[in-house]
Design a protein around this nucleic acid. Sequence first.
DNA 1: GTTGAGCGTT
Length: 255
Amino acid sequence: MWLSVVKDNSRRDTYSLLVLNITFRTSADDLFPLFEKYGKVVDVFIPRDRRTGDSRGFAFVRYKYADEAQKAVEKLDGRVVDGREIMVQFAKYGPNAERIHKGRIIESESKSRGRSRSRSPRPRYRDEYRDRDNRRRSRSRSRGRYDRDRHRGRDRDYHHRSRSRSGSPDYHKDRGRGRYDDERRSRSRSYGSASPAHRSPSPRRSPSPRRTPPSRGGSPDERNRKVRSPTPKSVSPRGRAADSRSPSPRSDADE
DNA sequence: GTTGAGCGTT
């Protein structure tokens, strides 16, 4: 019992550092010695995916003292690990976030002043939990990578520099996703009318609603009555048009 | 085997 208490205390007295931009192959053991060199590292934790079990690309390093952690941040921040430039910064969200708040260290600002950092101007965080919740909800693993990949692979470099320097990382990805969601939902409703309960994984392949599956209704008559289009003719007013797997308006094609 | 902005668990 007391052990648990001690453990808890240990956590509260530890400062968490967030390490980003690390390679997917980098493990806690690899970061431990690196951070341990700059101070007393209590523990290193790297969140992994439950499905694949792969690293997410970032790790949490807990330091025993804030001054050491802060030193590590300035020293390891920007250091190339495994061929990739990692970014180290104080963790904002977490169980010990309060501690960090206090250790934000104030020293960091004062001490940091003396040294001129060429990077990591420490972006200003507006909201904490609100944004965090929002992001985690949408983020599976790499949500915005398709957007960039489908366009160009070189953009990555540009974004990397931009984020590292200025600090305006998000605004186009959220916007794009939101728009897509809106459109997707709108279309979903259309299909939902035909078969809401059934999850059609391939709506584009078989959009013809001519099929009348007796879902759970014993008599099709009753179901028909409920539906506004009992006859297949109604379901496909255009008849042949329905065959065309293009129920969507041309407006979309325009874009 | 891939990915790349971000915030965490045995």
